[in-house]
Simulated scan of single mutants.
Amino acid sequence: MQNVMSPGPLLDARGHLVEAGWAPSEVKTYRRSAVKAPKFRLKEWDYYCVLTPEYGIALTVADNGYMGLLGVSWLDFTTPSEVTENVMLPFPMGKLGLPSSADSGDVVVSKGKARFEFRHVDGGRRLIVDYPAFDHGKGLHADLFLESPADDRIAIATPFPKAPRSFYYNQKVNCLPATGTVRVGSQQFAFAPEVAFGVLDWGRGVWTYDNTWYWGSASGLVNGERFGFNIGYGFGDTTAASENIVFVNGVAHKLDRLAFEIPRTYDGAPWNFTSNDGRFEMKFEPIIDRAAKFDVGVLRSIQHQVFGRFTGTVGLDDGTSVEVRDLLGFAEEVRNRW
């Protein structure tokens, strides 16, 4: 049994999680001022990934206490190739003003000539990025509208064993139809809602020092219906709930536990995903490994975010099965000491 959280504050007066578990909406209220850990331990980020069959973009605004980050990845699935560039922000410690809700409040951050805007507008979200220095001065400009239907999502509160003031409050919002353009250098790329879908990864929490996580996500059309999933594990105490879930036309179908079977060499060999109850059985064919390594003294991050296509079967709550073929998405392994 997985605990479904009830509405109320996320943290109590001691900075401890009031309740661990999951919900299909933002039922818990997060307040930065309620956190009782040092500011440099608190980590907040908004991450958007918007993909089409031929290309895609990933955008990050993160305040990790002693380090902030503005990140852009441009993905070309036909070549295939990717360009990732980050602007580092020293010791933001809350100065980025990231909102306390995934459903309200805007993100507007500038560093030098780079400017990121994640805004709530009527019917959805608008992502605007100006990054003149991107890819050796080619420059990147993005203006995308993500329609935000009143869908179910995964909102999950995870505690960490033996660290009562550590927690992770995370929301994943899948299957957001995208409209707009991205210009890279002199080339312009169109995003149309029939083929372009976005996901929001909204994270707020106090993490312990050494963690490895596994995350996978996909959004698109299957049998003419909006279909997506979020899968993952690897950190914290997930006894109360896993983050594994499937969405069909905005309705959530909760899954239990699953495992990532990853080739150790990241050489393009297929990945496999299997669940303890047989409801999620998937093969993943990699296209691009967006690998990154950051190692400075006590701070270390080794990332493999791999984009590719999922094929397999998913069992829904009513017992029916959905056949998935070549659904574009990503899966990752990230090891952090931070």
Rank of each mutant, 00 (worst) to 15 (best):
P7C: 12
L11A: 09
G21C: 06
S25T: 13
K28L: 15
Y30P: 00
K39M: 07
E44C: 09
P53L: 06
D63L: 07
D63G: 06
G71D: 14
P80G: 12
S81N: 10
L96C: 05
L96K: 07
G97M: 06
G97Y: 09
G105V: 11
R115E: 14
G124C: 02
G124Q: 02
D130M: 00
Y131E: 09
Y131T: 02
G137A: 07
G139Y: 05
L146F: 03
T158S: 10
S166Q: 05
Y168P: 03
Q171C: 13
V173G: 00
G185K: 13
A190Q: 08
V195A: 11
G205M: 05
W207G: 04
W207L: 14
A218G: 04
S219R: 02
S219P: 02
L221A: 03
G228R: 00
F229M: 07
Y233C: 04
F247I: 06
D256C: 01
A259V: 12
P270G: 08
F273P: 00
S275W: 04
G278S: 05
E281L: 08
P286W: 11
I287K: 11
D295T: 05
V298E: 04
Q303L: 01
H304W: 03
H304N: 11
L316H: 07
D318P: 01
R337V: 07
W338A: 01
